[in-house]
């Protein structure tokens, strides 16, 4: 064994010892003020040792070392909180501490609670409607913005603008419009936000207004990427605008549809800010003899369970299920759309 190898292995071992001792001290509640530095020195020694270790996989080790900062960041900000979240969903966590491991109780309670089941279905309805609305409007706007109409750059900017306003601000502005402006139409006309179905429609309108411009930009990019020569060839062959659109443009931008449908799907499913600002769950409706918040989507339901009810563990449970649902829906959608693309 070469001298260098011995040295680097010794370095790694020393680093591990220092790290373990420091962690042990920390968990035993020691208040030694240098323990933070010891931990850093220990870990740095391990890294250095790994780097200096002569081996055939030296390149791989270096690659790993350079990835480490990002991997660590990802771990600390995404993976560990996610794992903790899943863990907390099996406890009676209050947001401060937990006393017991309660298994699947949270999950059972969640599926039994009517408000969650209702909010699942209303979110589903909203998602489907919103996906259709936004995509149709966005595609039509994109056709307009890529046609030879005068001032189309102005249209692009104008349609995109609402997307730059924050959802909460937008929500309150529209709430004012629904409650104060539209009620001026005639005497006795009640605000849309007081009727459960119309309130859902109101959120749909605002959502489409906000999001269609953004999706439009993606369609515009897609439409512009359709090769000129094919379009010209079809023109020479005597294809009219409708045929060009259906037979050439649509198939050519099928992958743009995948992106847009995926984006709107996930975004509608996660809808929170507009929901909070426009209705905050109201108005109420009676379902099966019980009062229910009629426009409380899943994200808002989770938020209220954790924050308003102070049931952090239950809220966390709902969030875990929310994640799984979202993952299933998105993956299925991507899978189906990808298949379509190939066929076309």
């Amino acid at each position: 064994m070469s001298k260098k190898k011995v040295f680097s292995i010794a370095e790694i071992i020393l680093g591990i010892i220092i790290t373990v001792v420091t962690l042990y001290l920390n968990f035993m509640g020691s208040d030694h003020s240098m323990r933070g530095w010891f931990l850093i020195v220990g870990l740095a020694l391990i890294l250095l040792g790994l780097y200096m270790l002569p081996s055939e996989r030296h390149n791989q080790i270096v690659n790993f070392l350079f990835l480490l900062p990002l991997v660590l960041t990802f771990l600390v900000t995404v993976l560990i909180p996610f794992a903790l979240g899943v863990f907390y969903s099996f406890t009676d966590w209050t947001g401060v501490s937990y006393t017991e491991f309660i298994g699947f109780d949270n999950y059972i309670e969640m599926f039994r609670s009517q408000d969650y089941v209702y909010s699942f279905f209303i979110t589903l309805i909203f998602t489907i409607l919103n996906m259709i609305f936004v995509n149709i409007i966005a595609f039509l706007l994109a056709l307009l913005a890529t046609s030879k109409v005068k001032g189309r750059n102005f249209y692009r900017a104008a349609f995109f603008l609402p997307n730059l306003i924050g959802g909460i601000v937008l929500g309150y502005v529209w709430q004012f419009i629904f409650n104060k402006v539209l009620t001026e139409i005639g005497p006795g006309y009640m605000s849309m936000l007081t009727d459960p179905n119309l309130a859902l429609l109101a959120i749909l309108i605002v959502s489409a207004w906000q999001y269609a411009g953004y999706i439009m930009m993606i369609y515009v990019t897609g439409l512009q990427s359709v090769p000129r020569d094919i379009l010209e060839a079809s023109e020479v062959d005597g294809a009219n605008k409708w045929t060009t659109l259906m037979k050439i443009k649509l198939p050519m931008i099928a992958n743009t549809f995948t992106v847009c449908i995926f984006l709107t799907l996930v975004n509608s499913f996660k809808q929170f800010d507009l929901n909070l600002a426009i209705t905050n769950g109201a108005p109420s409706r009676i379902v099966g003899g019980k009062p229910i918040m009629s426009t409380e989507f899943m994200a808002l339901n989770i938020y209220k369970t954790a924050i308003a009810k102070n049931r952090y563990a239950l809220g966390q449970t709902k969030a875990v299920v929310f994640f799984i649902l979202l993952a299933i829906v998105s993956l299925t959608q991507v899978y189906i759309s990808k298949k379509k693309e190939v066929e076309m």
């Binding site: 920390n26 208040d31 003020s33 240098m34 323990r35 933070g36 530095w37 931990l39 850093i40 870990l43 740095a44 890294l47 250095l48 780097y51 200096m52 070392l65 350079f66 480490l68 900062p69 660590l72 960041t73 600390v76």
Partner: peptide, 24 residues
């Protein structure tokens, strides 16, 4: 130089974990 760089990167990515020295 590379070794130093790695050390620096390692340390900076770990400084966040440093406990504040509170004297009991």
């Amino acid at each position: 130089l590379v070794a130093l760089l790695i050390g620096a990167v390692g340390i900076t990515s770990l400084t966040g974990c440093k406990a504040s020295p509170d004297a009991s």
